[in-house]
Amino acid sequence: MYAIVEIAGQQFKVSKDLKVYVNRLASEEGSKISFDKVLLLDDNGNVTLGAPAIEGASVEAKVLQHLKGDKVIIFKKKRRKGYKKRNGHRQYLTQIVIEGITATGAKKATKKAAAEASTEEAPAPKVKKAPKAKKEDTQE
C-alpha cells in the first residue's frame, strides 16, 4: 500500500516505514504528525483518486530529526570581465518516518469509473459543421 501525499507544498510517494526528507516542519523531534492532504491511494491494485484530496484519508508520521541538507555551490562568472561571484546554500530539512496510512471513508475507484469521471469533468467541445455547397445544374 502506498499513497501520494502533499507535505509542505511538495508531493511525495510514501509507504509504511519509509524515511523521507521534507522541508523544515514546525514540530518537535519525536512528535507525531498527521497529513490529511492525500491525493492518491493504492491498496494492492485498488486505486483511489482524490478530487483534489481524498476525504477521510490521512498519513501518520513521526519526526526523527531536524538537519541541514548538502551544500549547493552557486558560481557565476562573466568571461573577460573580471566578474566572479561565489555563493552557497544549505536547505533546512526534517527527517520523518511514515508510521501508517489510513484510508477510512475512501471510496474505491475502478479504471472505468476514473475514465467516466475524467470525461464528466471536461466535456468535449461541440464543433459545428459548415453547410454543404449546393450543386447547381448547369446545362448547355
Rank of each mutant, 00 (worst) to 15 (best):
D42Y: 02
L40Q: 01
A53G: 00
I54R: 03
G56P: 03
A26D: 14
G30M: 12
S27C: 05
K32N: 14
K32F: 14
S58V: 05
L40E: 02
L49K: 11
I33D: 02
L39F: 00
E28N: 14
N46W: 00
S31L: 01
E29Q: 13
D42G: 02
P52K: 10
E60F: 10
D42S: 13
G45E: 12
I54P: 01
L25N: 04
L64W: 02
F35I: 15
G30V: 07
L25K: 00
V63G: 05
A61L: 05
L40N: 00
N46P: 04
L49P: 00
A57L: 07
L40G: 02
V38M: 02
E55M: 03
N46T: 14
E28Q: 14
A57N: 06
S34N: 09
G50Q: 06
A51R: 12
D43V: 08
K62R: 11
G50N: 10
E29I: 08
V63A: 10
S58C: 11
G56A: 04
K62L: 09
I54S: 03
I54D: 01
S34L: 06
S34A: 10
A26T: 07
E28F: 08
L40I: 13
L41I: 12
E55I: 13
P52Y: 10
K37Q: 13
E55P: 06
A57G: 07
K62W: 09
D42L: 04
L39D: 05
G50E: 15
E60D: 12
S31K: 12
F35C: 09
S58Q: 08
N44Q: 15
V59L: 09
N46E: 15
V38Q: 04
G50I: 11
S34P: 00
A26C: 04
L25W: 11
L64Y: 05
S31T: 11
D36P: 01
D43S: 10
E29K: 15
E60A: 12
A61C: 09
E60S: 14
L40K: 03
G30F: 07
T48D: 08
A61I: 00
T48R: 10
G45N: 05
K37C: 06
E55D: 15
V63K: 03
D36G: 01
V47H: 00
L64R: 01
L64I: 15
L49E: 11
D36N: 14
K37G: 00
G56Y: 07
E29W: 06
L40D: 03
T48H: 01
L40S: 01
L41W: 10
E28I: 07
L39M: 15
K37W: 00
G45L: 10
G56C: 05
L64C: 07
K37M: 07
A51S: 14
V59I: 13
A51V: 13
V38N: 04
K32P: 00
E60T: 03
A26G: 04
T48Y: 02
F35A: 06
L39K: 08
D42V: 01
N44S: 10
S27W: 04
I54C: 05
